[in-house]
Amino acid sequence: MSQNRKAVALISGGLDSLLAAKVIQDQGIHVEGINFYTGFCVEGHTHAIRKKDRNKPKRNNALWSAEQLGMKLHIVDIIDEYKDVVYNPRHGYGANMNPCLDCKIFMVQKALEWMQAHDFDFIITGEVIGQRPKSQRKDTMPVISNESGADDLLLRPLCARNLPETRPEKEGWVNREQLFDFSGRTRKPQMALAASLGFEDYAQPAGGCCFLTDAAYSIKLQDLWKSRGEKRYELDDIMLLKVGRHMRPREHFKVIIAREEGEGKFLRGYRKQFVCLDTVSHAGPLALIDGEVTRQDIELAAQLVARYSQGRSAESVELEVSDHGAEAYRIQVAPMPAHEIPQGWHV
């Protein structure tokens, strides 16, 4: 096998991409990893925000995978370019707001650009036929290769023997016989291969690799778009969807209420961009109001926030209001009784 060939491996942090890269490394190919950051990735965020999680050891699984393999990892920010994939997926969404097939096409296309810019020879992914119902099927594999433009420079080492030969195989850069024919939803072949290669303690994410596969998160994203009258988000929006209790008492505004201290601290960092409510007469959560609001709206939001404070049974609760960082003022409100909060307000 050639010592000079170079492959770029899409590394998600999961087991399959780790194995795919290892299998190709073991054929004497120089492999470097690439990891795309869309803003929706599950890695770390709630961990960083929630107080109870902050002291647990934490690791970024893509970096961990690269370290296991002794290879470089390039983390690429695709937040802005990725928006169009989320707004208009040509192949539609999965069970939630996850545009998996378009997402894969886009990532392979970006990997192809990187490969060409860095003079690498081919791309590898950890895809396995039948592993995921929407995006990893026998009929979607050529769609990803073709629509990304990678064509036969895209090699899937874990299921290559179930697919037509790619250029790295045809040219003898890699030995097809030493690639695999995994298929279906079972994880057993991957786990056996991991054991034989000496990998332990690898990440086993439940569901997908991003928040867009999460039903509750997807509902919040759709609510955001509905309230804006268009599909549009910024990085701060999608971060805030991961944090706190979201309630929409009126079409034109939403209240984000911290559920614990770490979330409160995180939300406080946004106080100059929003109307911010802080309970002062009792222990209570910090909250942000997202939307253009009147004094009456602020009072309604404050009543909701007071409901989640230690003063929920008190006659009145005092809160400090700061409007986009302007000088704060205080208001007194009666906490809204739990039974008066319509279920429909919870996003």
Partner: peptide, 15 residues
């Protein structure tokens, strides 16, 4: 983000 204390060193080690 306290995660930076593990992630930046990990990235440095491999690169």
């Amino acid at each position: 983000d306290p995660g930076a204390l593990s992630d930046i060193p990990a990235w440095c080690r491999i690169n």
